[in-house]
């Protein structure tokens, strides 16, 4: 019984998150938080019973401006991340997100057993994201897409630039702007829940696995067990 823990692994420092991914990550996090806060305000503006004239105030205007500015940052950042999914290192590659192999599913099952049911199982399969996280990020990317489509769809009528105008068809396909806005609004809740769970899980993994997960999005390095690293390396070959 005790023997099991006698296999202590040699850890290896692996450069997992390249600088562009880290940069992308924090820009993305910041813009999403800005979008959630401003989006929430747009949906439920505060009661500002002011004696000031409307001419001297621009509260909702500014909030919307921040929303749209953040939206552009978010959008281009997202485009960049898609690009990097094809040219970045293998931990950033698109295959990390889309279940294409048996191994992907096996690993998801493992993660489910260990991290959610808290059963014992074969650990440490992945070096970058685990498969479960990858799939959830994939859903997140889809949500990014929905938010960009509906957001720019709503924005298009107020813009003359060709880029937002590219999305002018969206509301008519979704059955009008009302429905488009509702979808945009509901999707916000996906992001709120995602952020909470995601941040928790980063803490969790760091806490339980001790691979330096927390700091990895800062410096890019993770501390990976030698066997896991080699196995991961061979699997890919």
């Amino acid at each position: 019984m005790k023997k099991k823990y006698l296999h202590i692994h040699r850890l290896r420092r692996v450069y997992v998150w390249e600088l562009p991914v880290r940069f992308y990550h924090w820009l993305n996090a910041a813009s999403i938080i800005a979008l959630i806060i401003t989006g929430f305000y747009i949906a439920n503006p505060l009661a500002l019973v002011s004696h000031q004239e409307a001419a001297f105030r621009y509260t909702t205007g500014w909030v919307r401006f921040i929303h749209f500015a953040a939206a552009y940052i978010f959008f281009f950042n997202f485009l960049f991340r898609i690009y990097w999914g094809f040219v970045g290192n293998k931990y950033a590659g698109w295959k990390q997100f889309i279940p294409t192999s048996k191994r992907f599913f096996r690993e998801m099952w493992q993660v489910f057993k260990i991290d959610i049911l808290m059963l014992k199982g074969k650990e440490y399969m992945s070096v970058g994201h685990n498969a479960m996280a990858g799939l959830i990020y994939f859903f997140t990317f889809i949500a990014f897409g929905i938010q960009c489509l509906t957001g720019f769809g709503l924005y298009s009528v107020t813009s003359r630039w060709w880029l937002p105008r590219l999305f002018a068809w969206v509301p008519s396909v979704l059955g009008g702007e009302s429905m488009t806005r509702q979808i945009h609004h509901w999707t916000m809740w996906f992001f709120i829940l995602f952020v909470v769970i995601h941040v928790y899980l980063v803490f969790y993994h760091d806490y339980i696995e001790g691979r330096g997960e927390m700091s990895s999005m800062g410096g890019g390095w993770k501390f990976i067990e030698e066997e896991a690293f080699i196995k991961d390396h061979n699997d890919e070959l």
Partner: peptide
Amino acid sequence: DTCYRRPFYDAGLY
């Protein structure tokens, strides 16, 4: 976009 109350919307006065 053509509503005369739009300045109040932008100002946050509801």
